[in-house]
């Protein structure tokens, strides 16, 4: 069982959360010409590192806020959590 510290509610079990994927993926900027490669990078291509991974989770059965979690994908250790709008 993972225990995730929601920055709004405190430490809760993983059952209260849903996963939202890699948080480092950025949508290409609006109002500018976007190349196929940029769309490809955004929609499909993932680093999926072994080790430190910054990812999105939603506290769906709690405050319903999206948060960022810095977690190790090999050991499942959670280093730090952030509000969605916080810079890491």
């Amino acid at each position: 069982m993972l225990h995730i510290k929601c920055p709004h509610c405190g430490l809760r079990s993983q059952n209260e959360f849903t996963y939202g994927g890699d948080a480092t993926v950025k949508r290409p900027e609006l109002n500018k010409e976007i190349s196929d490669q940029e769309w490809d990078n955004f929609v499909y291509l993932r680093k999926s590192p072994r080790g430190n991974h910054l990812e999105l989770w939603q506290h769906i059965s709690g405050c319903r806020q999206w948060i960022k979690v810095e977690r190790d994908t090999l050991t499942h250790e959670i280093f730090k959590t952030f509000k969605a709008n916080e810079e890491v």
């Binding site: 069982m1 993972l2 996963y19 890699d22 999926s48 990812e55 994908t73 050991t75 499942h76």
Partner: peptide
Amino acid sequence: DGYNSYAQRGNLP
């Protein structure tokens, strides 16, 4: 299990 993992062992939930 529902999140990126290289652990080769799972979680109970």
